[in-house]
Amino acid sequence: MPMNANDIEKMIKNAIPDATVTIRDLAGDGDHYAAEVVSESFRGLSRVKQHQMVYAALEGNMGGVLHALALQTSAPD
Rank of each mutant, 00 (worst) to 15 (best):
Y55H: 13
R47A: 12
E40R: 03
A34K: 06
A35N: 07
Q50F: 03
R47H: 04
T20N: 09
M1L: 05
D31S: 13
N61M: 07
M1W: 03
T20P: 06
N4F: 00
L45I: 03
I8Q: 09
A70N: 11
Y33N: 12
V21C: 11
L58Y: 05
R43Y: 00
P76R: 04
M11T: 14
M62E: 03
D7W: 02
F42K: 07
A27R: 13
F42G: 03
Y33R: 08
Q52S: 11
K49H: 12
E59I: 02
N14S: 13
A35L: 11
L66A: 04
R47W: 00
D29K: 04
T20K: 14
D31M: 07
L71A: 01
P17N: 07
P17E: 06
M3S: 11
D31T: 12
Y33H: 03
V21A: 10
M53Y: 08
E9H: 05
T73D: 00
P76K: 08
E36T: 14
K10D: 12
E40V: 05
N6S: 15
D25A: 02
S39L: 01
S39T: 02
N14L: 13
A56W: 03
G63K: 05
K49F: 10
G64F: 03
A70P: 01
G30H: 08
A57N: 07
A34P: 10
V65W: 03
L69D: 01
S46R: 03
L69Y: 07
D77G: 13
D18T: 05
Q52F: 09
M1K: 12
D18M: 05
N14V: 15
I12Q: 07
V38E: 07
S74F: 01
G44T: 07
V65G: 11
M53T: 09
L69F: 06
A27P: 05
G44Y: 00
V54M: 05
E40K: 08
P2E: 09
Q52N: 09
Y33M: 14
A68N: 03
I8F: 08
A35C: 03
G64A: 12
E9V: 05
M3V: 13
